[in-house]
Design a protein around this nucleic acid. Structure first.
Lengths: 243, 243
DNA sequence: CCAAAAGTGTTGCCTTTACACCCATGT
DNA sequence: ACATGGGTGTAAAGGCAACACTTTTGG
């Protein structure tokens, strides 16, 4: 009989048995931004019946780690970057979702400035990792297309509420780069003047007193995001970050 | 060696072994609303070292079900209600979180009109289930206090964006009941006139042309929520539900 | 007629949107 | 000098918050 009769967390003792144990994996949707394009880091899949498709990057959960730790391990393995932004997306537990057997997966998404990534990349060739434009992705292996959709929805929401977008831009950026980023990720168009006024009003951009170099037009001013001030405002409840 | 070397979903074959399998549970935070109080359905915990505390209601995931299905099974077992609102909260996977061993849990929250629940309640006495005022809950068993906090944050957010609050009210309600509900859940006070104007402007409340009974003052008009119209507006993108 | 809660409008302010012209640099 | 993208201000409209008195019922 199932545990339906008991309905109590206290009755689990008899159930911690092999028949009710599952493999757990963690899949990472790694978003990157470069040249006004939103991209995802994918790997070739060669597992039947998905040969030829691409998949997200995932590994099995190990015995002594949390799912978050597993996600960080995966990120470090394939990007050599630490301290990346990381957010949980959802759990995917359809019994038939994986051809090798019952694997419940936790999806996370993470954000990278591709320029930074390129500097740290180790052996992408070995791992067959590739940045693919989000708009070109349509048939991933397993249920990864669904995971990607969920992750992107989550990203679109969070990017409006928290300053996570700055994780996907170079440390020094122009206001127009910033605007292009939001327009790309949110798939909207915004008025340049209104955008600038709003962002400057937040009081969280540091004017670096520098300008672009090597551009064949009037060079734009460079800014960076004031994470310190953001944290302070967050703590004292003054914050109102809304794009 | 760990799977770190492989980093590829395709290399999992060798890992679907007992040593990397886990018990998975699903815990439900069941919120109920009654008499201007937000409550949670809890059960007594008698597992060391948490004897005497209360815990959320949870069961182990079974072999052939998704976590969502497990959550619905739990809800049906302890409330006899179907089609309740259900939303995923998060995963909790600290290796030491459960005294019986490694149990990774998925938390969901659900919403109930306690008045409706009372009608369907079967054997709450047997199961030692109890509605506890949210404000009186402070030391749950396991990591359930953390889960509850996360679930409540999620509820507060979602209740502003979607009409889930109506799941916690009687089918016929007065505008003041509705206002009290939002004030309680969001822990804010709102102006009565502004609240009414906003809600009526949504065009989603049906005036039932009935009034309260047995009240020793001017009886209030009764309304119900127009779920049909809401779905339509959602589909054609006309929707702007924001409290 | 009194108590108790229901119901109703207006105003000022702030936020958001729409919109067009000059500026700095490289070639 | 010209081409290219960078930078700036203002006005109108809409949404939001603040506020007090009248109405209906039961006792």
């Amino acid at each position: 009989m199932t545990s339906s009769k008991t309905g109590n967390i206290n009755t689990w003792l008899s159930h911690l048995q092999e028949e009710t144990k599952f493999s757990i994996s963690v899949d990472c949707v790694i978003f990157g931004y470069d040249s006004s394009k939103l991209k995802v880091l994918l790997i070739d899949c060669n597992m039947p019946p998905y040969e030829g498709r691409k998949s997200l990057i995932g590994e099995l959960l190990e015995a002594k780690e949390t799912t978050t730790q597993a996600a960080r391990r995966i990120l470090k393995n394939c990007t050599s970057l630490k301290d990346l932004y990381l957010e949980e997306v959802s759990v995917y537990s359809n019994p038939d979702r994986h051809p090798l057997g019952r694997v419940v997966t936790l999806a996370y998404y993470s954000l990278i400035s591709i320029a930074d990534y390129e500097k740290h990349i180790v052996d992408a060739a070995n791992k067959r990792l590739e940045w693919i434009d989000l708009e070109d992705i349509n048939k991933l292996a397993f249920d990864h297309q669904e995971i990607l959709t969920d992750a992107y929805n989550r990203l679109q929401r969070t990017v409006r509420e928290k300053p996570i977008g700055f994780s996907m831009l170079p440390k020094k950026f122009t206001l127009i780069q910033l605007q292009n980023f939001y327009e790309t990720v949110l798939n909207i168009e915004v008025d340049r003047r209104n955008f600038r006024r709003k962002l400057m009003a937040l009081g969280l951009l540091i004017d670096l007193q520098e300008v672009q170099d090597n551009v064949s037009h009037r060079p734009a001013k460079l800014y960076s995001f004031d994470f310190e001030k953001y944290k302070q405002k967050q703590n004292i409840g003054t914050l109102n970050f809304e794009i």
